[in-house]
Design a protein around this nucleic acid. Sequence first.
DNA 1: TAGGCCATCTGGTCCT
DNA 2: AGGACCAGATGGCCTA
Length: 348
Amino acid sequence: MTKSYTEESMMLEPQTSTDWTDKSHSSSQDERDVENTSLPMHKDMEDDEVGLNRLEDEDDEEEEDEEEDGDDTKPKRRGPKKKKMTKARLQRFKMRRMKANTRERNRMHGLNDALESLRKVVPCYSKTQKLSKIETLRLAKNYIWALSEVLRSGKSPDLMSFVQALCKGLSQPTTNLVAGCLQLNPRTFLPEQSQEMPPHMQTASASFSALPYSYQTPGLPSPPYGTMDSSHIFHVKPHAYGSALEPFFDTALTDCTSPSFDGPLSPPLSVNGNFSFKHEHSSEFEKNYAFTMHYQAAGLAGAQGHASLYAGSTQRCDVPMENIMSYEGHSHHERIMNAQLNAIFHDS
DNA sequence: TAGGCCATCTGGTCCT
DNA sequence: AGGACCAGATGGCCTA
């Protein structure tokens, strides 16, 4: 039984020499695919080491072999004739495919590099617990939107509204991750609980909730994405909470492993310095729940081996040094931007 | 074990 | 013709 191979039916050996930094997955993939090259259809080609230049010449010679067999019994097919796969054509096709695969891999690596860069500038960054691609994009979109609102309104939003904006449309694990990165008890910004806010908090919250246009994430797939239903977002537990809205720093400062808190994220989380919330004067803090950004502090803390998220606190949530993205990791441009943001938050 | 996430291959389309 | 881009398919890894 003979079989003529068209390009459409070809199984090709993939590129096997790559230098990307991917893990064993890639190599095992290569090994697996290399094995595929021993498919029967390639048997007659396996020992053909002809170079591409040689193939060009050979192809011309074999071109005439592609003439129809003169088989009139079969109905003629419309459209362009599918040429038989000669050795030369097969090899050329394989080479083309391998090059295209390499390009595609490189393209995707570039895309992943860009995504990794994005991960580092959104509020929550951890080397050990990376945000997924989709969650990174969603968080980045929320972050941009939230910062835009800060710039637009010129007012400093309250923390919870800001975090709510950050977490809109994110999956529950990511929401917890963001909350953990910000050392915030996720419970404190549940939508329904905000109704029980003390008056002064409601006022602060209004700076974000009373925005001229509502923030939505249309077109998101069904859960776990695309809903702010608190029951899925934070694993709301039925046990009684001391207060519907305890100051978020209470939990953060007292104990990271407080039972009422969802617990430290494991593996340890880190903050890249984009946000950390300073508790300097609790009375002042409770006044408006304003938060500050202090890149320098976080960066210095990181440089000293720990990210002390709450300077001056007796009980801190220390993050291993190796997980911290140092302040130096930010470009000059980023520092300028951060300084501007600092000014916004401090001046307003 | 199912589902989520990911890397890779592949063929199609568009553009230069 | 060849490269960039895209989306579908596939299979591996990991976690709940």
